[in-house]
Amino acid sequence: MEENFIIYNEEYVLIRNNLNDLKENTGAEIIFITDSEGHCIASTGEMEDSRLNSISSLIAGSIAAVNSIAQMLNIEKFGTILTESTQKSLHISLINEKTMLIVMFDKNSNLGIIRLRVKTATQELEKIFVKINEKLHSSAMRENDSPFEGVSDEDIDEIFGD
């Protein structure tokens, strides 16, 4: 079974900085990272969390579907997917097998610049995710303050208002 995916503060800050730089350099509206299970890992730009979560799950679903199509056609995975409209467009690129970078932009941004900057950004992000995975597999690096350590059944009942 796959392990829980954990991000620590140090890497989270690096990811956020990377996304902020990318946003500044491309003029994109919103940039976020989602994993293949639909969890939004980090974002920059103005959007409510709940909306971002829904969009993340839909993108993860559509990427999974597109990659299944690729498999059936015996072609390599799609590294980049672009969906364009007259208002907003989405540029989706894979960082690694499990995570993807999504850039939402409007007509004020230049697609060529986005492509160029995303390429550099995904390379940097890939390194950060390698670091995250190394930490995940190094028990010594795990933080002691597990969120559920010391949580009682009563605490769990409480969140349901029991």
């Binding site: 079974m1 392990e3 829980n4 995916f5 991000i7 620590y8 989270y12 800050v13 299970e37 969890h39």
Partner: peptide
């Protein structure tokens, strides 16, 4: 696979 973010 749960996703835990210690930062946020």
């Amino acid at each position: 696979m749960s996703f835990l973010n210690y930062s946020t």
